[in-house]
């Protein structure tokens, strides 16, 4: 299987690759390992071009996109209703971009479309790395904090707690991101339970048709 990953840093990409392998249950080949986005809204802006590029110019089977939610609206169960679309939810937005872009594409490289895997880390991917280590770090707690206008933690605090410093260098960040991803890879259920933004990605990956 050939997959491309789009996220905000090489550290995140390395960790996401580990998590994706754990969910699909086998190794995959990275195509176009140099994709990178500058955070939101840059991801949404460049995504159509990246989808078209992968579809026409590579033999990638799928594209995995993972972004941070930051302070945006979190994707919740009501958003999953047919035809529902929340304009401030990054999950809804990214899925819509995939749908819109792929609708217009003719088949290429023997496939109709690129498979889609979208994950949103609430509020940042460091929360995934802390999942299971700190019980208070969950998507539900973040949403409760948003509702009460009292966020339980900031992005900066999450970084400090995940990496042991608020200013990790890329090497430290990658080491810890991969270490925590490997911890989850042994059993992804806790991460899926505490972070529906990861569970959505996992269920998309599991629903993919088997590709040889």
């Amino acid at each position: 299987m050939k997959l491309a990953i789009l996220s905000e840093s090489p550290a995140d990409e390395a960790a996401i690759a580990v998590l994706v392998e754990a969910v699909i249950g086998h190794k995959f080949t990275r195509v176009q390992s140099s994709l990178r986005a500058r955070g939101w809204p840059s991801v949404a802006q460049v995504l159509p071009s990246i989808i078209r590029h992968l579809h026409f110019n590579t033999d990638a089977d799928g594209l995995i996109v993972v972004v941070d939610s930051d302070d945006s609206v979190v994707h919740t169960a009501p958003h999953e209703a047919p035809e529902y679309y929340h304009p401030m939810c990054r999950m809804c937005q990214l899925r819509a971009i995939f749908r819109q872009t792929m609708k217009k594409l003719p088949p290429a490289h023997g496939r109709d479309r690129i498979l889609r895997g979208v994950g949103v880390a609430v509020p940042a991917v460091e929360a995934w790395y802390l999942c299971g280590l700190e019980d208070s770090v969950t998507e539900a707690n973040w949403i409760a904090g948003q509702t009460a206008a009292q966020p339980p933690y900031t992005r900066r605090q999450l970084k400090g707690r995940a990496y042991g410093t608020e200013r990790p260098n890329l090497y430290q960040e990658t080491e810890i991101a991969v270490r925590e991803a490997r911890r989850h890879a042994r059993d992804t259920r806790r991460l899926e339970y505490d972070f529906p933004g990861f569970a959505s990605l996992a269920s998309e990956l599991r629903a993919w048709p088997k590709v040889s």
């Binding site: 840093s9 990178r36 410093t165 200013r167 990790p168 260098n169 890329l170 090497y171 430290q172």
Partner: peptide
């Protein structure tokens, strides 16, 4: 542009030596 993260990380080593 993609090297700038590494440049910043290097300078942080100067400003915050304990963190590394």
């Amino acid at each position: 542009p993609r090297m700038l993260r590494e440049m910043r990380d290097l300078l942080y080593r100067l400003s915050y030596p304990k963190e590394t």
